[in-house]
Simulated scan of single mutants.
Amino acid sequence: MDVWEVLQSHPANKCEEYNQRGSFRKCSMIVSVVPCNCIDGFGPKDSDQWRKGDWFGGCSRKEALECGRNDSGDGFLAVEGVNLPDFASTVAAENIEECEGKCLTNCSCNAFAFVVGIRCMMWSGDLVDVEEFTEGGNTLYVRLAKSELGMSSILL
């Protein structure tokens, strides 16, 4: 009688389950106690469910963006060492500064990244399946209102 041996199984961990943690959150296998956290500037949509370990509802902005108003003050928080969310639009830009400018002038742009070989990528919908890695990954620049950008935030 043959015995089957499992060589590989997918998803390999909870972070790899597609969109099982909701939007605007990041999943990390680095922190084993709480694998999901809202991205800075976002909070749980349903705090009661969140405390029970049900993160499916995801996160929402703490402060509304200022886009479209005079001198909006919106800026970006660098979320480093992550995989980039699905469903990006590629935009023609020669460098990260140009990519940032294009995102700032588009009120529906929630985040951008500038990746060697791909160049400028922008996200206008919810950010789903952002996974934090112990090493490697890319930097995702998440758009936040000026009031959410503290001194620890990395702005371009």
Rank of each mutant, 00 (worst) to 15 (best):
D40M: 02
A12D: 11
C38M: 04
C15G: 05
C99W: 00
L84I: 01
T134E: 14
W50H: 06
N37G: 09
P44Y: 02
G137L: 03
V3T: 10
L149V: 02
S23L: 07
A93Q: 05
V128S: 10
C15F: 06
V3Q: 11
I154G: 03
L140C: 06
Y141W: 15
I39Q: 01
K45A: 09
R25F: 08
D74Y: 00
V6P: 12
D71K: 07
L104C: 01
S89I: 07
N83C: 12
G68I: 06
C59D: 01
S108K: 12
N70A: 12
W50E: 08
D46L: 12
S47K: 14
M151L: 13
V130L: 08
L7E: 11
D74G: 01
G136D: 02
W55I: 00
L155S: 11
S124P: 01
C99V: 04
Q49E: 13
I30R: 07
E98F: 07
T105M: 06
L104K: 06
T134H: 08
V6I: 15
E63Q: 08
A113K: 01
V115F: 09
E66G: 15
S47H: 09
Q20I: 06
N138R: 06
A113Y: 06
S89Y: 09
N19P: 08
G150T: 13
F24Q: 03
A92R: 09
V33D: 13
L7R: 11
H10M: 10
E135Q: 14
A145M: 01
I30N: 09
N37C: 07
C67N: 00
N37Q: 14
F56C: 02
T90N: 11
A113F: 05
P85M: 06
